[in-house]
Design a protein around this nucleic acid. Sequence first.
DNA 1: AATTTACGTGACAGTTAAGTGACGGTGGCT
DNA 2: AGCCACCGTCACTTAACTGTCACGTAAATT
Lengths: 236, 236
Amino acid sequence: MASKKVLIVDDEFSIRDMLRMALEIADFECLEADNIQDAHRLVVDERPSIVLLDWMLPGGSGIELLRRLKRNETTAEIPVIMLTAKAAEDNVIQGLDVGADDYVTKPFAPRELIARIKALLRRSVGGDDRDRLEIDELVLDIDSRRIFVAKSPIEMGPTEFNLLQFFMSHPERAYTRNQLLDHVWGANVYVEERTVDVHIRRLRKALQGGVKDYSDLIQTVRGTGYRFSSKGMVAG
Amino acid sequence: MASKKVLIVDDEFSIRDMLRMALEIADFECLEADNIQDAHRLVVDERPSIVLLDWMLPGGSGIELLRRLKRNETTAEIPVIMLTAKAAEDNVIQGLDVGADDYVTKPFAPRELIARIKALLRRSVGGDDRDRLEIDELVLDIDSRRIFVAKSPIEMGPTEFNLLQFFMSHPERAYTRNQLLDHVWGANVYVEERTVDVHIRRLRKALQGGVKDYSDLIQTVRGTGYRFSSKGMVAG
DNA sequence: AATTTACGTGACAGTTAAGTGACGGTGGCT
DNA sequence: AGCCACCGTCACTTAACTGTCACGTAAATT
């Protein structure tokens, strides 16, 4: 198995260091962040297989990040393990409610943590989650984060990829620009509605680039927004 | 899963907020109300798939709303889950009598609540859950905002779509031009009555465009306005 | 049958929404 | 630092839809 990426989010250097060491011994690749902004960016850009999230962080508590991740379609599936001080049982409950998949109380034995990580990865990888979405000869490979048209890869930016992933997981449905912003960009980000148009255009352009032209899978719904649909596809 | 609308009726902001968060993570679309009047209006206008109803509300207790909903034919089918303080066992009995479909006592785990919501939706919706209106081979798909005639899509403008959606939700009934303006264009817009005629014509034309001609579902009621009716449809 | 009234229809111009190309800014990478 | 990819926004173009009119036609009224 290719080594899996683990994102460590903790503001204490010593803890990160200890975790990194334990994880690397267990053959995981490590990413680190000591604040929410970096962490979120790393999740989006690097798409780790799992996130270890400390509860207490400067600039917004861990639950804030957790909410953001779970609310966003493209990051919600990534398992999150909360790291929490022993006393704060309340937080555990709260965290599990918001969507954390497991928690470990400090101080913890690295062995235990790694066991839990492996358990979660087994669950998420082995489960019913499919790692690719396809329509006709258009294939979106979630694991490698690549798009193929008739077996050959086509290029697009991360946002276009996320947008397409969202569309392909929710076909035959019209979405407003704001809904797309919520699902693809994440709620509580502030960007103009019209920005969606531009990314739609970039995505369409990318979908034209391949051997086959799939750009009209993305349809404009005037007065509303956009829709992804394979209905009425012409064979050939 | 297609996202379903859930109406949260509770006067405490914190509870609403918590519920909204949990529900959005579970991919539900949320509506909120903190009083009976707003709640009732939202039920009628938005037609949520389910209502979460707090027992204690300012301006009339939750049971009042429950009665109103269950008494009305068009809202009676919407499942209602009561949210109730632990002590008040009596209320639960009373609520179930009046027609609540389930209840959850506070404090509750969001996971549990979501499980119940899903259970109820499964029960009431049955299998595949798409919002659509259909008459014979004419299908209006609300989710994708498309019209199909005999499975193939036909084109029309937004206003025509809205008009048809209104007609198909209110068949067998004559409406004056002004009523149509109110319902389809919205009150407080000022347009000429005759404008309706033009859109009716455009809609009829669109309904002729498909494989089958459905234009005479829209009938002129001379001296009054128009009516959508499937009565007297000719087979073939 | 003539007249009046209401609706149907095609055309038109103003308005609004979406498509598009360009640009500056940012952050990662070498 | 310098380069590169990408993002968000803007200004402008293009396309689509809207509302209204003028005129044609059908139905009621006389």
